[in-house]
Design a protein around this nucleic acid. Sequence first.
DNA 1: GTTCCTGCAAAAGCTTTGCAGAAGA
DNA 2: TCTTCTGCAAAGCTTTTGCAGGAAC
Lengths: 136, 136
Amino acid sequence: MEKAHQDIEKRIAEKGIRPTRQRLRVLAYLADIPCHPTVDQIYSALRQDMPDLSRTTVYNTLDVFLKAGLVRSLTISSHEACYEYALNQHSHFLCEHCGKIYDFNISITPITDHDLDGFQIHDKHVYFKGICPKCF
Amino acid sequence: MEKAHQDIEKRIAEKGIRPTRQRLRVLAYLADIPCHPTVDQIYSALRQDMPDLSRTTVYNTLDVFLKAGLVRSLTISSHEACYEYALNQHSHFLCEHCGKIYDFNISITPITDHDLDGFQIHDKHVYFKGICPKCF
DNA sequence: GTTCCTGCAAAAGCTTTGCAGAAGA
DNA sequence: TCTTCTGCAAAGCTTTTGCAGGAAC
C-alpha cells in the first residue's frame, strides 16, 4: 500500500502535475479499486475522510489526469462518465440489467489497411453491451 | 425517395410500431442522411416543416426505435448521444478537433474463447478517437 | 371508444463556470 | 510572492417525468 502510494506520487510528478492532497487521493483511489467509478462514486467515497472535498475538484482532477494520460474515461453508460486508472488497455462489457462493467481482452484489426489511413489515433474503446452471467 | 419512404413504413410496421407522422419523419431523416445526428440536430432539422414537433417526441421516438433495433445510439461523444439508422454494423472514429464522426470497418475477436463465456451480447461498439486527416 | 402518442412545462441529473480564499513552489 | 488549485454557488445542457389534449386503430 505504501509502495503503491509512492508510485502514485511518482506518476503524478513525472507528468509535471502539482501533487495536491486531493489529486493524490483521487489517483490512489482509482489505482486501488478494480472497478470503474463515476465522479459521484469517487466523490462520495473520498468525502468520508475528506469532508471538504468538492465535486468540482473531482471533475478538475480527473480532467487533469485525462489530459496527462493517467486515467481513461469510459462513455459506455450513456448518462454518466466512468473513470479508470490507465494501466493496461482492455475492453468493457456493460450489463444492461445490473449496470456492472466487466473487463475483457479483445484483438481488433481494420478490415482493410486503408480504413484508417491518415488518421492519428489517440484512443481505442471497445464496448459490448448485453446481459452478464449473473443476471442471465 | 418514395421507395425509401415505403421501406421506412414497412420497417416500422414489421416491428409492430404505430406509424405516426413524427415517427415516420424521424426514421426517414436518419435513413436519408449519412451522418450521426444528435437529438437536437434531428429536432432542429425536422422542426423546419413540423413547427409543432417537440423534443420530448424525438426522445420518445428514438427510444422506441432503439428498443426495436431500428436505430443505434452512439455514446462516443461524452456529453450528447448520437443516433444512426441500424443498417450495417461498423465502427466509429471521432475527431477530437472538429468533432466529426467517421465510419470504418474493423474485425474484433476475443483474445481467448473464455473471455465472454456466459455473456449474452446485444450490441458491440468500437470507438476510436484522435485527429482526422483534414485536421492533421 | 379505447389505447397509445404528442407536446408543453417543469424537474432532475450531470457537468461547467466564475470567483474569492487557500495551498503549493 | 506568485502561481495554481480548491470549494462554493450558480448556471448550463441534456434528458426525464407528469399530464391534458389529440391521433391512431
